[in-house]
Design a binder for these strands. Structure first.
Lengths: 262, 262
DNA sequence: AGAATAGTGTCTTTCAGACAATATATG
DNA sequence: CATATATTGTCTGAAAGACACTATTCT
C-alpha cells in the first residue's frame, strides 16, 4: 500500500503504454575456419542499406524462445539448432522510430545447414566474418559504453568488403560484441561448440578444435586440446568413438559421436 | 522482400499487439552468514497472499536498467548498488491475466543498506533465506523444466516459517533458481561478492569469505581463500591494505579497500 | 593461561601450456 | 620415401584442496 503522495508521484500515463518487443537472432556459423554471422541488408528506413541482425516482432501467442525458433526458420530455413537467450537491449533511443526493446538470441548453426541461404529471396543476406573483437565481458554492462567496453571491430563480407561495426544498423554492434564475448566465455564449460559441428554423430576432434579456434580467434595446442576434451567428455561418456574416418588426406582420424545425455 | 504467400502466411493481427513489459528485481543480501532475498506479499489477485519478487512496469521513457534502479529505490530505499540483468522470462502463460514479459534483474545489496526495510509501509516485505538450491545452470534453459532443471527448494522467513519454492507467485521459483545458480557461477571470475560487502573501503577477508560461503552454501578453506583473493585482487592492485581492524574479539584482522579501477 | 579469531606454511594432486615424438594414411 | 594429418608422451609451472601450524588480541 502506497501513500497518496507516493501514488501520485509514481503515476505517469506513459507507464501504461507498452513498448514494442522484438526478438533479434544472431545466427553464427563456423565455415572455412572462421566464425561468421548472418546479416541482412535493410531495405527500409531507418538505416536503409545498412547491415543488421535479423529479427522480428514477438507475437502475443509465442514465447521469446518460440519467436526466435520461428524467426530462424523463416530467415535461414534451419530447424533444431542450438538457441540461447543472450541479453535484452532496452535503451530508450535504440530505435529512432519508437520504443523498441529487443530480446537477443544466439544461434549456433553448422555451416552445412545454411547452404540454401542464397534461396532466401531478393532480400540481401550474407555471412560476415567477425574480425578483431577484443576484451572481456566480465563485469561489463552490454548496453553501456563504460570501461572501454565497446571498441570497434570489423566484419568481412563474402566478396571481401570490410565494414566497421559502427556502420551496422541500430545498436547491433553492441549486440554482436556481447554475443562474441559470451561465446568465448562459455566455450570451455558448456557444450556450445558442439552446436557448430556438422554431424554430431560423426565428427573428428580436429573439427571440434577448429571450431574452438574460430570462436576464440587464436590457435590452440593440438595435444592439449585433445587431452582436455577427452577428459571432460569421453571420460563422462558424453562422446564416444565410432570408428575411423574414411578417405582422409593424411592419417585418418577417429570419429566420435556426441550423446546429449545428462 | 517476401512473396505474397509468405507475407500472408506470416501475417497475424496479434503480431501488432504489444505485450506488457515488467522489470522484476531480485534484491539479494548476505546477513547472518546466509544469502537472503527480499520478497513482498501480494495484496491483489492473482496469487493474492503469495510471496513474490518485487517488480513494476517498464515506463516508456526509461531503459530496463533505469527501471530496475528506480524500482529498487522505491522498494528498498537503496541507491548505488550493483545491478545486473539476469534473464528475460516470456512464457505465454506466465501471468494468468494478460501477456507479460519480465526482464529480471539481480541486485547485490550490503545488508546494512536494507535496515530501514520496515519503513516500506503496510506492504508486507521480508527477507527470506534461500535453502537448498541444487544443480548447475550450465546448458540449462531457465524457462523450461527440462533436464531436471527446476527442482524444489525452500525459503525461510524471518519468523522461522518455511515455504516451498512452489508456493511463490507466478514463475518466480524459476527466476530465483536462475539467479542463485548464476551468482554461484559468476562468483569466482567477477567482482560479484564485493557488492555485498558492507563498506568496500574497509573490509576484512573474513567478511568477504563469509559472503562467498553464503552464496555457495558451503564452507571454504580459510587459507586457500585468502591465497586466491590476494593473488587475484591484491597482486592486480584492485584491493589494498588500509590498516588493522579495531576492537575485534580475537586477533584484529587487516582491513582492505576495494578499488574499482579496471 | 585460555578463548577466539587472523594469518602462514606445506604437501599433494590436478591441470594448462609448451613442445617433442610417434603413427597411419596417400601419392 | 616424402608429405600430410592424427595421436601420444613428457616436462614444467601454476593453481586447488587438505590440513597443520603460528600470531595477536581480549578476558
Amino acid at each position: 500500500m502506497q501513500s497518496e503522495q507516493q501514488y501520485l508521484s509514481s503515476y505517469d500515463p506513459s507507464k501504461y503504454q507498452h513498448p514494442s518487443v522484438t526478438v533479434d537472432i544472431l545466427i553464427f556459423t563456423v565455415a572455412d575456419r572462421k566464425l561468421r554471422l548472418l546479416l541482412i541488408k535493410r531495405n527500409e528506413y531507418p538505416y536503409l542499406g545498412k547491415w543488421a541482425i535479423p529479427g522480428g516482432f514477438l507475437r502475443m501467442d509465442e514465447s521469446a524462445d518460440e519467436a526466435a525458433a520461428r524467426r530462424i526458420r523463416e530467415e535461414a530455413g534451419v530447424e533444431q539448432v542450438h538457441l540461447e537467450q543472450l541479453y535484452t537491449f532496452s535503451a530508450v533511443d535504440r530505435d529512432p522510430r519508437t520504443r523498441v526493446i529487443s530480446i537477443a538470441y544466439l544461434a549456433t548453426v553448422p555451416s552445412g545447414k545454411l547452404h540454401y541461404l542464397a534461396g532466401v529471396g531478393a532480400e540481401d543476406a550474407a555471412l560476415f566474418e567477425i574480425c578483431g573483437v577484443a576484451g572481456k565481458s566480465v563485469n561489463d554492462n552490454p548496453e553501456s559504453g563504460d570501461s572501454g567496453a565497446d571498441e570497434d571491430f570489423l566484419l568481412r563480407g563474402p566478396d571481401g568488403t570490410v565494414i566497421s561495426s559502427r556502420d551496422l544498423a541500430f545498436d547491433h554492434y553492441r549486440i554482436i560484441r556481447t554475443a562474441v564475448l559470451r561465446m568465448r566465455g562459455k566455450l570451455d564449460y558448456t557444450d556450445l561448440a558442439f552446436g557448430f559441428v556438422e554431424d554430431p554423430s560423426s565428427f573428428t576432434l580436429t573439427e571440434l578444435r577448429l571450431i574452438h579456434e574460430a570462436i576464440l580467434d587464436r590457435p590452440l595446442d593440438i595435444g592439449n586440446f585433445r587431452r582436455t576434451i577427452k577428459r571432460e567428455y569421453e571420460a563422462a561418456g558424453r562422446i564416444e568413438e565410432c570408428g575411423p574416418e574414411k578417405g582422409a588426406v593424411g592419417r585418418p582420424a577417429m570419429l566420435y559421436r556426441f550423446t546429449d545425455k545428462k
